[in-house]
């Protein structure tokens, strides 16, 4: 029995020593470093954040980006600090940032909080809707003393989008099925920014409200929702032609879907439509081109 007594004494002693040696309160409240008036060394933890920083003319002040930041091309030359899902905190710190910008996903939020505890400034931005994109641009503008550029960027994007919508008109919206993944079939639901882009491009999501943001659906729903156009963002940037061929082959089994009958299955370059960033207009235009090709052909002539 004596051994157990000693063990209990040891545990109590250990806990007490821990409380004495390590300043628990201080460890908890380390995140009170005031943000700098103007961020000079910025790390971006997501490709669309990188695009925003470049669009605001902050290229010189970016000291780190994620591996998946590939636009604009100059971004690929910046120091890499891990991937979007697996950020490397050592690399972030080694870049000596005074501002780390992350998205609101769990993984990213977690990184931001860890950095905060060590004493680094971070900014968590949710960019899942078009309105949130504009907000995020303004917030980044404010943090970098680029308010003017931010206003201009937002103004520019909205102006171009308005013009596009004026060209297309809002009557008789095209029903679009946005395919994220083929096997198993997953499409974009109503509560996504893709849905917003489809609507900005004069279309309408063929899928109604769903539980998931990107609901998995069966063949039954594909036929039931009667899409006039099916769009697949290209997964493999290197071989869009290959995906186009396999897409036609795959969709051919739905012989009574209007999009298939009229051969309106499109594989489009994924970048501008899979990230919500300052190339929102370019992405929306690509979609609009799929929805109303005749309109754009006329324009070109």
């Amino acid at each position: 029995m004596k051994k157990w007594l000693w063990l209990s004494v040891l545990i109590v002693f250990w806990t007490g020593a821990g409380l004495a040696i390590i300043d628990f309160q201080q460890e908890q409240n380390r995140n009170d470093t005031p943000p700098p008036a103007q961020a000079d060394r910025i790390v971006s933890m997501a490709p669309n954040l990188t695009e925003i920083l470049f669009a605001l003319g902050l290229e010189e002040r970016i000291v780190g980006v994620t591996l998946d930041s590939d636009y604009p091309p100059a971004a690929t030359k910046k120091l890499k600090v891990g991937t979007f899902w697996q950020p490397n905190i050592e690399a972030v710190i080694a870049a000596k940032p005074d501002l780390v910008i992350t998205l609101g996903f769990d993984q990213q939020r977690n990184l931001a909080e860890r950095l905060k505890r060590i004493g680094y400034n971070s900014l968590i931005l949710n960019i899942e809707k078009v309105s949130e994109l504009f907000e995020a641009i303004q917030i980044i503008g404010a943090a970098t003393i680029k308010q003017h550029e931010a206003n201009e960027l937002v103004h520019d994007i909205t102006k171009k989008l308005d013009k596009l919508l004026a060209l297309i008109g809002t009557n008789d919206r095209v029903r679009v099925l946005w395919v994220v993944q083929r096997e198993p079939l997953r499409v974009a639901g109503r509560d996504t920014f893709i849905n917003e882009m489809i609507e900005l491009a004069g279309g309408q999501n063929a899928i109604g409200p769903t539980l998931h943001k990107y609901p998995p659906i069966g063949a039954e729903q594909v036929i039931a929702c009667q899409p006039e156009v099916i769009i697949e963002p290209a997964m493999n940037q290197a071989d869009p032609a290959g995906q186009q061929a396999s897409a036609l082959q795959y969709w051919n089994k739905f012989r009574n879907v209007p999009a298939v009958v009229n051969k309106r299955v499109y594989v489009i370059s994924g970048d501008t439509v899979s990230r919500l960033g300052p190339r929102l207009y370019e992405g929306t235009k690509t979609i609009a081109r799929c929805l109303r090709p005749e309109l754009f052909e006329k324009l070109a002539q």
Binding site: F105, D106, Q107, N110, H212, K213, Y214, P216
Partner: peptide
């Protein structure tokens, strides 16, 4: 997992 959003599944 099947009813969760993909970003939550990732975490």
């Amino acid at each position: 997992t099947s009813v969760a959003q993909s970003q939550q599944i990732h975490a």
